[in-house]
Simulated assay, not measured.
Amino acid sequence: MAIYRSDGDKYAIAFVGFSYIDLVLLFICLRLFEKAEPNSSTRSNLKAAVWVLTTLLTVVFSYKVAAIMPVPVQVLVWAMAGATVLGGFYAFFVHRESKY
């Protein structure tokens, strides 16, 4: 439906296609991550893939939103996207849960 409504806009079609492919890959990686053995290299690789896929989605959606906003709001959108990406990196790769 989104491609039909894009009225032949190549960039809109690419955005929709990329978003759907990214989401499908994200769900596949999440499912494989859940099934992977704890502390395995496969699990670590899947964690990295999940972070990359969510980062890509954050960037493309931020780009689309920022494109229609005035400059001060664009700065806010990109700041929030950066905080989300960095927060995700910290949560996935830096933070260690306490054993208590």
Results as ranks from 00 to 15, higher is better:
F89T: 02
P72E: 01
V75F: 15
Y11R: 14
S40I: 09
S41F: 12
T42P: 02
R5H: 10
V65L: 14
P38E: 12
L30I: 15
K35R: 14
G82W: 02
Y63G: 05
L53V: 05
W78Y: 15
H95R: 10
V60G: 04
T55L: 01
D7Y: 03
P70M: 05
V60Y: 11
Y20L: 13
A48Q: 09
W51F: 07
L57R: 08
R43P: 07
I28K: 09
D22T: 14
V65I: 15
G17K: 00
E37F: 12
Y11D: 10
S62Q: 06
A2S: 12
K10I: 11
L32Q: 14
V16G: 00
S62I: 11
L46M: 07
F61M: 07
F61I: 01
R43K: 14
G87Q: 03
L57P: 03
L32P: 03
I3H: 08
C29M: 12
E34K: 13
A81G: 11
E97A: 11
D7L: 12
S98N: 09
K35G: 06
V50D: 06
A81E: 06
V52H: 02
V85N: 05
V77R: 04
D9N: 14
L26T: 15
M1D: 12
L25K: 04
W78E: 03
L56V: 15
F61K: 02
L46F: 08
K64C: 02
T84I: 14
L46V: 10
S44Q: 12
V73I: 11
T84W: 05
V52F: 08
R96M: 11
I13F: 01
Y100L: 13
V75L: 13
I68M: 08
T42R: 15
L46T: 07
T42D: 14
L26M: 13
F92G: 00
L76E: 04
F33T: 03
A49N: 00
T58D: 05
M1V: 12
F27K: 04
P70V: 03
Y100F: 13
A2M: 10
H95L: 08
K64E: 11
T42I: 13
H95W: 10
S62T: 14
Y63C: 05
Q74P: 00
A91M: 10
D7W: 07
S98G: 13
V85Q: 01
W78H: 02
F18I: 03
F15L: 01
G87P: 04
A91P: 00
I13R: 04
